[in-house]
Design a protein around this nucleic acid. Structure first.
Lengths: 155, 155
DNA sequence: GTGCACCTTCCCATGTTGGTAAGGTCAAGC
DNA sequence: GCTTGACCTTACCAACATGGGAAGGTGCAC
C-alpha cells in the first residue's frame, strides 16, 4: 500500500505519516525497489490509533506512551487509565482557563453600551482602569493558554 | 526608562517588548546615544494594555485592532464590543472542544477497570473498536484544538 | 512513448516565547 | 582612573504539529 492509500485509509496525511516516522512514533516502513514506502493493515491500524489519540487531544509524548502500552501485552489497564485521567485533568484545566477568560470578558462586555459612543468599559478594563476578575485558580496568578495555535486539522 | 524597567513596570518581558516592536505592535522606541531603548509612561500603559489583552486570550491580530480602537477617539463602543464578543464565542468554542474531548475520554475511562489486567476499553477505543462519541458540533467532523501549546506564561 | 498521478527528499513558514552567545554601556565602589 | 557586575544590543536557535512547494524519480493507462 502506497503512502497515499495509507493516508486515506487512516485519516492521517501523507505529510504527517512521514513526520511520525521521522520522530520515531512509527517504525520506518519497508521500501519497495522504487524507494516507495509500503504499508500493510497493521500500519493502518497504528496510524488510526494515533489519529484518534490526537483527536482526543493527547500530546505526542502521551501518544508514545499509549502506543507502548498498546503493544505491551503485560500492561495493566491501570497504567492506561492513569494516563487518560491525567490527560482529562489537563483538558479540563485548559477548558477552565478559557472559560475564565470568556467570563471575564463577558463581564466587561455586559457593561459596554455597544453603541456609537466611544465610552467603553472593555477598553477601560484593558487599560487597567477596571480590575479584571480572572479568578485563576487558588494561589496562582493568571496563567494564559496560548491563544490561537493557528493550524487546525479538518479532515 | 530602560527596557528592563519597562518590563517590570508593565509585566511584559524585555524579549517580548522587542518582539512586539519587531512585528509593529508597538512603535519603535526612541534610542539613547548608547543605542538603549527609552520608554515613557505612555509606552508602559500601552504594554500593560497588550498584556491584559493577552491574558484574556486575544490573538495578536485582535490586539492590533483593539489598539487601533483604543487610540481612535472617534471609535464606537459597538466596534470594541463586537471584537470582544466574537472572541468570547471563540473562547467558548475552544473550551467546548476541550470539554468534549475530556467527556469522551472520561466515558472510556469509566469503563476501564484500572487494575493489573491488560484489558482496557480506553485502548480499544483508540484502536477503533469502540466508537468514540466526540459529539463535535453539528455537521463538523471532529476538529482538534492543538494539544499542549507548550509555553505558558507565569509572571 | 507520452502524460498524469503519485512518490521521494529537502527546505521554508507558521506564532509566541524562552535561551544563549558575543559584544557594548552604565554606574557604583575602590 | 579602573574594575566589576548589571544591564543593554543584535542575532541566532529551539519548540510544536502541520502545510506548502520545488525538483526530480516511478508507475500505470492509453
Amino acid at each position: 500500500m502506497n503512502i497515499g492509500q495509507a493516508s486515506s485509509a487512516s485519516g492521517v496525511s501523507a505529510k504527517m505519516i512521514r513526520y511520525y516516522e521521522s520522530i520515531g512514533l512509527i517504525p520506518p516502513s519497508p521500501r519497495r525497489d522504487s524507494g516507495y514506502r509500503d504499508y500493510g493493515a497493521a500500519d493502518i491500524h497504528r496510524l488510526g490509533f494515533i489519529r484518534r489519540a490526537r483527536d482526543l487531544g493527547f500530546a505526542m509524548d502521551q501518544i508514545r506512551d499509549l502506543l507502548r502500552l498498546w503493544s505491551d501485552r503485560g500492561r495493566s489497564s491501570a497504567e492506561v487509565k492513569a494516563i487518560a485521567l491525567r490527560h482529562v485533568a489537563e483538558l479540563e484545566e485548559r477548558a477552565r482557563e478559557l472559560n475564565d477568560m470568556a467570563e471575564a470578558l463577558k463581564h466587561l462586555a455586559a457593561a459596554c453600551g455597544g453603541d456609537e459612543r466611544p465610552d467603553c468599559p472593555i477598553i477601560e478594563g484593558l487599560e487597567g482602569q477596571i480590575p479584571i476578575a480572572l479568578h485563576g485558580h487558588p494561589g496562582r496568578a493568571s496563567s494564559r493558554t496560548a491563544a490561537r495555535p493557528a493550524s487546525r486539522r479538518s479532515r
